[in-house]
Each structure stands twice: as structure tokens, then as C-alpha cells.
């Protein structure tokens, strides 16, 4: 009786929980199924990990995503701050354009990048003169990753800066701080958590990028491309262990970083 009454009283919660559960299982089951069915076959997994092509690809993915995040940090944070603090005509347009990489199909993004950073455009030409080429190179992987993942960093950092009361900067100024000092001693530390979250998101997004990278740089081979190649050439059984490793590594690193960021927030 009381159980029925409970259901009667909480119909909305129960309905939403059931629907939520559905989508949660949809995310979890494929990942879990693949990971667990491979983990039981430890030998193959171990062999795959020791395959220099696989470990090299995973390492390259993590490293390239890290480099793009670092570049994104130095170029994205200033823009995020400007957008958080200033109003100017066309600001909405700028904000909208920054988010465009999220909605553009990533293969199309790769083509667009190839156009600009290829040899037939002055930018690509200019970089080539200083010895940087973007086709089938590490630099190509990095710019592809930056392009598709920078919106996450900029948006997150911008929200973080907005939450810092502008009068904190004003007070700092009256106390003798230059605009730079006010930024680095007050605003930046206070927005740090959002910036860190943005960086983690950007890094994670970089690791998972496939479409834009494969257009610019099939080689050197990042892990998502390797998964694709093995699937195309040898079939599901060969692609799966690599995919599992990639998922495991990404998830572990993601969890570790999130935990660190969370702890930083608590203290």
C-alpha cells in the first residue's frame, strides 16, 4: 500500500530515473562489453600493448593532444578573458564562430585545414619555409586537434572568468596592482578550476579526434586511425584490442585528472 502510494507520489522522479537509466546503459554496455570480453583474453591484450605500433600510436595520441592543449592554453585563455570582460559589437558573432568547430563534421574541418595549411596557401607556404609542414606530420595532428577541441577550453575558461567579480580586479588596481598583476594574482587563480576543467576537456577531446586528423595526417598514425586501419584491413578481431586499450588509457587518465581537479577545488 505504502509502496503504491510512494509510486503515486513520485511518478515524475520514477519516470525520469527509468529513462535516465536507459541512456546510461546505452553508454555503458558497449564500452563494458568490449572491455570485459577483451580483458578476459589478457594474453592478446598484453601482446597488443607490446606491439610497438600500438604503444607508439597511443603515446603519440596522448602527446599530440597534450601539445595541442598547451598551445590552446596560451592562445585560448587570453581570448576567453577578453570575451568574459568586454562587450563589443560583434561579440556574439565571435562567440558563435568559436563554437563552430563543435558542429562542423570533422572530416570537413580537416579538409578546411588542409586548404589553409597545405602547400597551396600562403600560410602553409610560410610555415614550410621555417621547416614546418602539416601534411602527414606531427604538426598536422596537433593543428587538427586544436581546431576541434579549442572551443571546450575557451568556453570553460570564459565562464570561469565571468564568475570572478570584476571589482576584485578593481580593488587590486587601487591597491597598486598593474592590470597584469591583477590578472595573474587575482583573476587567474580564482578562475583556475574552470580553466583546468577546460584543459582536461580539450585534452580528452583531442585524444578522441579522428576525422580531422586522418585528412591531414594519416601518418604518423594516432591510435584512433590505427583502430580504423586495423578494422579495415584485418577486421573486427584485430581492431578490438587496440580499441580497448585506447578506451582504458583515456578513461584512466580522464578519471585521474578529474579527481585531481576536484581535489584542487575542495581545498
Amino acid at each position: 500500500m505504502s509502496f503504491l502510494r510512494y509510486i503515486g507520489k513520485n511518478r515524475l522522479t520514477i519516470t525520469f530515473v527509468l529513462l535516465g537509466l536507459l541512456i546510461f546503459l546505452f553508454i555503458i554496455i558497449p564500452l563494458a562489453k568490449m572491455v570485459f570480453s577483451s580483458v578476459s583474453d589478457t594474453e592478446t591484450l598484453w601482446e597488443t600493448l607490446l606491439d610497438p605500433e600500438v604503444s607508439g600510436a597511443i603515446g603519440l595520441t596522448l602527446f599530440a593532444a597534450l601539445i595541442s592543449t598547451i598551445v590552446g592554453f596560451f592562445l585560448g585563455i587570453p581570448l576567453a578573458y577578453i570575451l568574459a570582460r568586454n562587450n563589443f559589437p560583434g561579440k556574439r558573432l565571435v562567440e558563435g564562430l568559436i563554437d563552430v568547430p563543435i558542429v562542423v563534421p570533422h572530416t570537413a574541418a580537416g579538409i578546411a585545414l588542409l586548404f589553409v595549411f597545405g602547400r597551396n596557401f600562403f600560410l602553409g607556404e610560410a610555415f614550410e619555409k621555417v621547416g614546418i609542414t602539416f601534411v602527414d606530420s606531427f604538426a598536422g595532428i596537433v593543428i587538427a586537434m586544436i581546431f576541434v577541441s579549442i572551443p571546450f577550453l575557451i568556453d570553460s575558461a570564459k565562464e570561469g572568468f565571468k564568475k570572478v567579480d570584476v571589482r576584485l580586479e578593481k580593488v587590486a588596481r587601487t591597491l597598486g596592482a598593474s592590470p597584469w598583476q591583477a590578472f595573474f594574482r587575482i583573476t587567474f587563480p580564482l578562475a583556475w578550476r574552470s580553466i583546468l576543467t577546460g584543459n582536461i576537456m580539450m585534452w580528452a577531446r583531442g585524444i578522441s579526434e579522428f576525422g580531422a586528423v586522418i585528412i591531414l595526417a594519416y601518418h604518423p598514425m594516432i591510435a584512433p586511425v590505427l583502430v580504423y586501419e586495423r578494422f579495415e584491413t584485418y577486421g573486427l578481431d584485430y581492431a578490438r584490442p587496440v580499441a580497448v586499450l585506447l578506451i582504458l588509457v583515456s578513461v584512466i587518465v580522464f578519471i585521474v585528472l578529474r579527481t585531481l581537479a576536484y581535489r584542487g577545488d575542495k581545498s
Binding site: V171, T174, A177
Partner: peptide, 14 residues
């Protein structure tokens, strides 16, 4: 502002 030697105290402390 940093060179004026004028301090400010806001209503909600800041």
C-alpha cells in the same frame, strides 16, 4: 588607478 594612491572599499567588501 594603481598610481593614484586612492583606496576603495565596496559595500559588499570584495
Amino acid at each position: 588607478p594603481e598610481k593614484r594612491k586612492i583606496s576603495i572599499v565596496y559595500q559588499d567588501h570584495v
